[in-house]
Write a protein that binds this DNA or RNA. Structure first.
Lengths: 159, 159
DNA sequence: CACTTATTATGAGTACTTCACAATAAGGTG
DNA sequence: CACCTTATTGTGAAGTACTCATAATAAGTG
């Protein structure tokens, strides 16, 4: 809870009022990275039971716009939030169980920020580059290898 | 329409029946890359008016699983589909108007497929890496520069 | 041409998120 | 410190994108 003041001053510097709802949401995201709005609500309600889902959506959206939170949307998943911002890191999601891992940036500090444009496309001014790795985590790989090894997928995972 | 046979044989090779619905969806995606399901439905209905939305969803989902189509989900947008598969290209989306551009892969043929794992994370077996660039396209930049240049954002874009 | 089974249409339902507006409270002012 | 302004939150409802269950249809095999 010693981070309360840090969050408060960050909110101040963005011209936002310091409310217990915002602090509860920030703490919940910090302690539960890669959580969806629903999970953040559940976590935040342990401190602030009267918090509503709609407030969580509003706060998350606003804080994301302020760059105090980062949001990303894996396929077939609700949006996930985290407090780790500004370091241009990436994410790997398991297509089987959905687990998410952070992946540090490979090419220095701001790697993927310079795409190579086609001749016939109009370049954009890039602000962020999200790299989303999709694969299968070790646990799910182990589970899928239970059948005999000659057996090949006749039904490809789940969807 | 000369691609009909190519689609048909591709469907066959995946053990799928060749239906006019599938062909209409494939043609619609091919001629309208980066379109959402709704747009694909509208385009496909020009050839096949009795096509239903649910069928489009089923077909898109199935063909994506077969890797005949590629699907990606920009933030705050429904899923978009394209026929360009297998070349590991990326996408840039304008956060203001939503326009999408293809971006070829920079680092050779399969670049971002080798993330650098943290010490404390369990590596996954990566299958695909989607790079999503977010920025502002030239058109939207021009529109935002109408106020005097000393003016700095007091309201940051839209959401 | 008939038959089997994949595929599509129909209708309803769900998950996630947003909207409109009233109630509340943060933080500046006197 | 009470008051006031206005941002913020709560309430209730609605919307979008998508999925599910089941019946009708049609592709492809014999």
């Amino acid at each position: 809870m010693a981070d309360q003041e840090a969050w408060a001053s960050a909110l101040h510097s963005h011209g936002r009022r310091v409310t217990k709802q915002r602090l509860a949401v920030l703490a919940a995201v910090q302690h539960n990275p890669h959580s969806p709005a629903e999970g953040i609500l559940a976590a935040a309600r342990k401190d602030l039971p009267e918090l509503t889902a709609q407030s969580v959506y509003v706060v998350l959206s606003d804080l994301t716009d302020l760059q105090m939170l980062r949001r990303f949307e894996p396929p077939h998943s609700p949006a996930l939030y985290e407090t780790r911002v500004g370091d241009n890191h990436h994410h790997a999601v398991c297509i089987s169980c959905g687990r998410v891992e952070d992946v540090d940036c490979a090419v220095g500090h701001a790697p993927c920020l310079t795409p190579h444009w086609n001749e016939n496309s109009k370049p954009m001014t890039i602000q962020i580059a999200d790299v989303l790795y999709q694969g299968i985590c070790q646990d799910c790989q182990a589970k899928q290898q239970l059948p005999t090894q000659t057996q090949v997928t006749h039904e490809i995972g789940e969807r």
